[in-house]
């Protein structure tokens, strides 16, 4: 039986009567990459803040590496490495100095520390920039430095809060590589949050889909996708009324496993086999006298899983420009 490194039991956080996290329970075993997937404001960061002892849960309890976050916060802090959503490096200092201060703070012996800084900066390919002030780093370099720093004291579990938020696609791919490499090389237990479904699919052994502070479902990306069917067929009808008629008739005949409507005139059906379903949909539409404007089908993604669980889309699955700009505004431009 593998060791459980993160255990949460009924974690709840209420802000002024608003339940940001609502009775969340889950377990992460040693060596696993476990992800929280959900839209902005779903309660992901609040959950992390409770797990890493920066916030007290209103109700519930959690254990990290066997230590209670409520009763043994110091032991919990010693067991974790954290990469926050917003950067937490000292921009006036160099990359090497940021690493050094972290290592001394965590009481890594000086000779070991010197060697590890070289190793880890090499791992995230920042060795050439070790003596450069962090204010001259790009967003991706800062994130890489933070990952290296979080690994310096060899934590039992690494927390990554939206590790690629606001990064351009090439940089995201690079960060993914490091995380996968880290998993392969050290078997590090990782807890991450993301609102990018491709990120969750790519990195996570198991995913918890979270919305409005509640976990809706937990499973491997494969299990979750299998849960809703083999294929997803999107049908764009002429208007909302014809979409409704289509849904009614398909449901009556039992042609699809489930359906959801991401926007008024679009329906996404999950089916056993798209090849036989598509002709059937056309048959239904011509019988009803309904115009179909567009049909496409694909294998289900985690976005479809989310859509079928909540009736809404996760959106911006691939680091959109809006996200990128928003994060840039928050970080870089603030000081002119």
């Amino acid at each position: 039986m593998p060791r459980e490194v993160v255990v949460a039991e009924g974690l709840t956080k209420v802000f002024d009567g608003f339940k940001a996290v609502d009775e969340v329970s889950f377990r992460v075993v040693e060596g696993e990459v476990f992800g929280f997937l959900g839209p902005n404001g779903a309660g992901k960061t609040t959950t992390i803040n409770m797990l890493i002892t920066l916030m007290k849960p209103t109700k519930g309890e959690a254990w990290i590496n066997g230590y209670s976050v409520l009763k043994e916060p110091d032991k919990v802090r010693r067991s974790i490495g954290v990469v926050f959503q917003d950067s937490t490096v000292d921009r006036e200092l160099t990359g090497w100095e940021n690493m050094w201060i972290h290592g001394v703070t965590y009481k890594v012996p000086r000779d070991v520390l010197k060697r590890k800084i070289v190793d880890l900066l090499g791992f995230v390919e920042l060795d050439k920039y070790a003596k450069t002030q962090v204010r001259n780093y790009s967003g991706g370099m800062v994130r890489r430095l933070e990952i290296a720093r979080a690994l310096l004291h060899e934590p039992e579990v690494l927390f990554l809060d939206e590790p690629t938020l606001g990064l351009d696609p090439q940089t995201r791919a690079k960060i993914w590589e490091y995380i996968l490499e880290l998993k392969r090389r050290t078997g590090m237990t990782i807890f991450l949050t993301t609102h990018y479904m491709d990120e969750a699919e790519r990195l996570c052994d198991r995913v918890a889909i979270i919305d409005h502070g509640k976990i809706l479902v937990v499973g491997s990306p494969e299990e979750l996708k299998r849960m809703i069917g083999r294929d997803v067929v999107y049908v764009k009808a002429f208007d909302e009324r014809s979409a409704k008629m289509l849904i009614g008739e398909v449901a009556r005949r039992g042609l699809a496993l489930s359906y959801a409507s991401p926007s008024s005139n679009v329906v996404s059906f999950t089916v056993e086999d798209a090849h036989s379903f598509i002709p059937e949909v056309f048959e239904v539409s011509s019988r009803l006298g309904v115009h179909i404007l567009e049909v496409k089908y694909s294998k289900p993604t985690l976005n479809d899983v989310f859509l079928h669980l909540t009736g809404r889309e996760l959106r911006d699955e691939s680091g959109s420009w809006m996200d990128f700009m928003r994060a840039r505004m928050r970080r870089g431009f603030r000081r002119g």
């Binding site: 002892t53 920066l54 032991k75 802090r77 010693r78 926050f84 950067s87 937490t88 972290h102 703070t105």
Partner: peptide, 13 residues
């Protein structure tokens, strides 16, 4: 403002 405080608050010291 620049986040470094979190790094300090989450350290086991």
């Amino acid at each position: 403002e620049f986040g470094y405080l979190k790094e300090v608050l989450v350290a086991p010291v």
